[in-house]
Computed example of a mutant assay.
Amino acid sequence: MADRHNRDIERQQAPLPEPLPVPTVDAHAHLEIVTNDAADSAAVRTILDEAKSVNVDRVVQVGYSAEQSQWCVDLANLYPGRVLAAVALHPNEAPVVKDLERDWAIIEKLAQEPRVRAIGETGLDYFRTPPELQKRQQESFKWHIELAKKTKKALVIHDRDSHEDVLSVLLEVGAPEKTVFHCFSGDVAMAKICIERGYILSFAGTMTFKNAPELREAVKLVPHDQLLVETDSPFLAPTPHRGALNTPAQIANIVRAMAAERNDDVAELATALSVNAERIFGSFV
């Protein structure tokens, strides 16, 4: 993933938006890719401070590999009150790591850290994974589900081109009490299934893209208490900054877009999203 990281940090950062009227949370970010720097670097602090200046004052930093999950824990420990961590092997990592059980052991140990509040991002991704590796990916997904249940922490799901199998696996092994679909990419029918099962749907800048009318219809259906917002920084900057380097500050633009689609008051929606994040991931203090 290093080449992709380098490409991302070369992009121009999206400009800071108008501040939200009340504080809220970015439920999913990868700040190490935004900055390509150490957790205690000035660059990371700048990104967090810029987000706070527009009233995005808390961030969930999400893992995708054993090594990078340690980075997530380090960042959360450096910023009590502002950052929490999730740890996992990304579904694209699981089929290609040299020693899957070794990496699982690292993730399981990190999951015991007090500021780790979720197991993720795990799940299925058939976009890049050939059929012969999908079984290994499914095995890793199931392992992460069981870890989330054992640790009583939220499960954060990455789902790309694999909607049916993700839903089937969750039924087969039993979903954790708090199950989050990160960067929800399904249609209205899938949203209805997830809502009925009590899953949490997290929407990103993709909701603002011209080619995503299904996401705009789906976001209208989600009850306030099953809704989160995220940037997936540094990816998926919202319109009108699509293609720019995304940062947690862009939550302000995404929340306004969500409020417009749902006919919600911006302040009330931002407050609900904040309350949901604290209920799902716990206090940031």
Rank of each mutant, 00 (worst) to 15 (best):
Q70I: 01
A111N: 03
W71K: 00
A39K: 09
Y79C: 14
I195P: 05
I145A: 04
T151R: 15
S274P: 05
R102A: 08
K135H: 14
E18S: 08
R197F: 04
L236C: 11
N253K: 14
I254E: 08
E32T: 04
P23W: 03
F209M: 06
H224E: 10
V275D: 08
Q137F: 03
G174M: 13
A244H: 11
A257Y: 14
R4P: 05
A39R: 00
R197W: 04
V285F: 08
T151K: 13
V156K: 01
L78H: 07
L78D: 04
L84W: 08
I119Q: 02
D40A: 03
E172W: 14
V219S: 05
E172Y: 12
T129N: 10
A270I: 05
P91E: 10
D225H: 11
L167W: 06
A43V: 07
P131F: 12
R82P: 11
L155A: 02
H163S: 00
I251F: 02
D187E: 15
A39Y: 04
D264T: 15
A267L: 11
G186K: 09
G205I: 05
V73H: 00
V275L: 11
A42V: 12
K153T: 00
K153D: 01
L170C: 10
A66P: 02
P80N: 08
G123T: 04
W143Y: 14
Q250Y: 08
C194P: 03
V180C: 02
M190W: 03
A2I: 13
V83A: 06
L167K: 00
A43T: 01
D103N: 12
F203I: 09
A86I: 07
Q112T: 07
A118F: 11
T24I: 15
T151G: 06
V156R: 01
A66N: 03
D159W: 02
